[in-house]
């Protein structure tokens, strides 16, 4: 291939990416890949791609050749040497995503990816893979955890998030290794990672004050995090949640999770936020159905864990929202 051909095809590829970015931004589908707060970078990329593509098309072979070819080993010319096969492969690498991007940009992650990432997979696994294996010891540990949880819950209610470690009376019964684990997880406030309470103080106040919590795109991650942290505090309140449905392998037919993906930077870091529900009427609902569910917050035990769920639910089918994901909101200025 001559260098002119290379310059031409590269120009076309760059313009292809320009069109892809433009289309994604224009239709808003870009948010299926990237969190909105990253957008300024993509305006930058769009402009740069357009400029590079245009320049590339009008880039003259001779332009590069200005007298210094012998002395300048700036690498670019070596890029143009190689077999035809190699270049067909390399350029195909660039061209394929342009097409798959244009053709399939509206796809949103759903139940298949949710199953891969797992709802509470941490918790489920912990129970399955031996840390709290199903034996007597583990029952004790589970009880211990329950107890700790309840205690820390009461502490939370007393507004003492950093209160001291749980009672030590039962410690003898708990084997050393297990004790280490639950200490790391639950021992007081200083080792507990990510307390949503400290991240969403206003939201917590709001949720405690109201009788009917309505989950929106903006408070979604916050509400779920607070419910996971301390479900007991919200028992009895009404809650409305929207999301898609999915089941994991070990779910009963009448169990499913209603939730949405939360994105920090790009879809690769997506995590699932949702509630586990149980009701006869859910049996007929397939995975990947979008629902609006309203019910009363109750706690349920799932593999020895207290989770928030909804009772006496009203189920309503809805269309998938324009933007199926929710985004983790954070404000660096408040740090």
């Amino acid at each position: 291939m001559s260098k002119t051909t290379h310059l031409f095809i590269r120009g076309v590829i760059l313009l292809g990416f320009t069109m892809l970015l433009f289309k994604l931004i224009w239709t808003g589908d870009i948010n299926r890949f990237i969190a909105p707060r990253m957008m300024p970078y993509f305006y930058f990329a769009l402009v740069v791609m357009a400029v590079l593509g245009t320049i590339q098309l009008f880039r003259n072979d001779k332009d590069d050749d200005h007298d210094h070819h012998e002395s300048c080993h700036c690498a670019h010319d070596h890029d143009y040497q190689g077999s035809k096969k190699k270049f067909t492969f390399i350029y195909a690498l660039f061209i394929i995503p342009i097409f798959t991007g244009l053709l399939f940009s509206s796809h949103a992650l759903g139940s298949s990816q949710a199953q891969m990432m797992g709802f509470k997979h941490e918790l489920r696994l912990a129970t399955e893979t031996g840390i709290y294996a199903n034996n007597e010891e583990s029952q004790q540990v589970a009880q211990q955890i329950e107890q700790d949880r309840e205690e820390s819950a009461t502490e939370d209610e007393n507004n003492e998030p950093n209160a001291s470690s749980p009672s030590e009376t039962d410690e003898d019964e708990v084997p050393e290794e297990y004790r280490e684990h639950d200490e790391e997880r639950y021992d007081g406030g200083d080792l507990e990672i990510l307390t949503p309470e400290s991240m969403y103080p206003e939201l917590k106040e709001e949720m405690l004050a109201t009788d009917h919590i309505v989950m929106t795109e903006d408070n979604y991650v916050g509400v779920i995090s607070l419910l996971e942290e301390n479900p007991d505090a919200y028992v009895g309140k009404e809650l409305t949640i929207e999301g898609f449905t999915f089941r994991e392998g070990d779910f009963e037919n009448d169990q499913l999770v209603v939730g949405r993906f939360g994105i920090t930077c790009c879809t690769a870091d997506a995590g699932i936020f949702g509630l586990l529900l149980e009701d006869n009427r859910l049996e007929e609902i397939r995975d990947d159905t979008w629902l609006r569910v309203t019910g009363t917050i109750e706690t349920v035990e799932y593999n020895n864990w207290q989770l928030a769920t909804l009772e006496d639910i009203e189920i309503e089918r809805i269309d998938q929202p324009d933007d199926p994901y929710v985004y983790e909101q954070f404000d660096y200025s408040e740090l």
Partner: peptide, 26 residues
């Protein structure tokens, strides 16, 4: 009728690539 897992792959692949583009350009 493409399996959703393949589309998931495509979406995550594009998201990693797109995410990197502005920073590679910078």
């Amino acid at each position: 009728n493409i399996p959703s897992r393949v589309l998931d792959f495509n979406t995550i692949f594009l998201s990693i690539f797109l995410e990197a583009i502005p920073f590679v350009l910078l």
